[in-house]
Design a protein around this nucleic acid. Structure first.
Lengths: 306, 306
DNA sequence: TGGATGCATAGGCTACGGTTATGCCTTTGC
DNA sequence: GCAAAGGCATAACCGTAGCCTATGCATCCA
């Protein structure tokens, strides 16, 4: 189900937020680098699309109406997450000549790194960061080879020659469609049944898949059923699980919205320990300095907060 | 600071998510109601803007690259919040001939209602909901007058003739710019100092402002300083507080991102009880049924989860 | 080997969003 | 009381971004 066109263009909503902050359409226009008539037209069109007046235009400026306040409140989280997206893209795009090179496993890169990068930009405004992503093994390799200044890995393995610091913990969760038999409280599976059930999962190299298999092995389950379906993206896995194809195992971060909405149900598996540490790593001999040290500090600070 | 143009158009990112879910550009195009060449062009342009390939095009379909997986992961929260925004706008826009009419105070409408409406649409797909927003007193009036089927209010007051059920608790927080003296742990203000300090605040009718004043009165502070600045929107209040104009009092929900980013600092005020109940209200004589009953159920369920 | 599937390219059209120029209204200050 | 300034709306013009249809090309499969 695609997003309705009413909300696909964030420019107008961003402009509305600027009007709320600055108190006039003209100042908001200037802040966005467009002319006042252009801003006025955009806001008028936004009001037409919403169907109710959002601004009270006065001779001294413009103020939000009650409806405008509501729309601004709903729009703000959208632009905040868009800022996260932008920070991530900027790091992906950053060409070779950057001040800080980092590598991160998928989980860290997806759910934690954008916020850290925004905080880093506040601390070191001129720092350009380049991000490369891969599985934990690849990240460790890049740190050891000196290709990056700082790495973020998941899982227990840690090659010699690296120092590490915990920055977060991640938890895998088993999810099924609401109609699945495991969704019922009395039908919860034990380790043996889990091992014997084909799942929808990532390709073999995936850290998530490895962690799942190791957790089962730790329970003494040596015979693991082959996956029913192997797909490349988290989105596709969720779609397959929602469609009732098979149960799936994903990072808890990834399924928050689906659990909220009830389109997926979490199945507790007390037999298995599915938690894993997310750690920053850097070469043993080396003391971090400059932006790399700042980023590590930011990551450690966010740990104590969360 | 306006949003970079790279992320202002969500259409391409939404399309990318559909490709991840459906496995081919053509199917994603069909899901979005556009032609396959149009989708192909959009994705190609997206890749140009990001600067790295996002898709592996094969003869059998298209799969996400590692970078594509990252971008999709960052984009997903954006489109989710955009869906909340859309749900809110749809309720604002809904004309008179609707099945369910609700009224909500600003805090509930801003932070809780969109999710509930999305869940309601899943339960009753054909229900059209109309939302009106006002302060708690106005909401209660509308419920009593029969103008709406269900209301959501904040604060302790409750007119006779209404039944109520708790759906959430809200907490007000006192925030200052990082440089403010109250930001220091040893300089925390007592009730008397709080009462004597001009704040930046909403206009007098606001429920947030009333709750703050009542909390001070409950401490025996009868002499309250007049606000330094009265502005109309939450956004403007935050901007003023960030700018160091004066401390501000806002719903905890409203300042989560600023506290995360460190642009605002929360000042604990143990002297004051700033919590308040958020409640659903409906006419005493009446048993809720249909969509109104479903919405109440959804709201109560979300309470137990959160 | 022929058909089906799926992505890319080409050409043409529409419409949207931007700019500058200008007008009108209200508040402010001498 | 009048001039100046601040702020929003309207008008006329223009460039381009994005969509569609038609078509081509590569790969997989029967």
């Amino acid at each position: 189900m695609p997003l309705p066109s009413r909300v696909t263009d964030l420019t107008s909503f961003d402009l509305l937020l600027s009007v709320a902050e600055l108190g006039s359409i003209g100042r908001a226009a200037k802040a966005h680098g467009i002319s006042q008539p252009a801003a006025s037209a955009r806001l008028r069109q936004l009001e037409r699309q919403v169907g109710v007046p959002l601004l009270e235009r006065a001779t001294r400026g413009a103020r939000l109406t009650t409806a405008g306040e509501l729309v601004a409140g709903w729009a703000q989280p959208v632009v905040e997450r868009a800022a996260d997206l932008e920070a991530g893209i900027a790091a992906l795009r950053a060409d070779r000549h950057t001040h800080l090179r980092i590598a991160a496993s998928l989980t860290v890169a997806e759910y934690l790194l954008p916020r850290w990068l925004i905080a880093l930009r506040a601390a070191d405004p001129d720092t350009v960061t380049a991000l490369s992503s891969g599985n934990s093994h690849e990240v460790a390799e890049q740190v050891l080879a000196g290709d990056v200044d700082l790495g973020f890995v998941e899982g227990p393995e840690l090659p010699p020659g690296l120092r590490a610091a915990d920055v977060a913990t991640d938890e895998l969760v088993l999810v099924v469609a609401p109609g699945h038999r495991w969704a019922s409280r009395r039908r919860r599976p034990r380790a043996a049944e889990l091992a014997g059930t084909p799942l929808v999962s990532r390709e073999p190299g995936s850290g998530t898949r490895q962690a799942w298999e190791w957790a089962l092995l730790a329970c003494g389950e040596t015979e693991l059923a082959a996956p029913l379906l192997e797909v490349s993206s988290t989105t596709a896995i969720k779609a397959a699980a929602i469609g009732g194809i098979a149960p799936a195992v994903l990072s808890a971060h990834a399924v928050v919205p689906e659990l909220d909405a009830g389109t997926l149900v979490r199945v507790p598996v007390p037999d298995l320990d599915l938690r894993r540490r997310l750690r920053a790593v850097w070469p043993s001999g080396q003391t971090l300095r400059g932006p790399a040290a700042d980023l590590l500090t930011i990551a450690l600070r966010s740990r104590t907060e969360g």
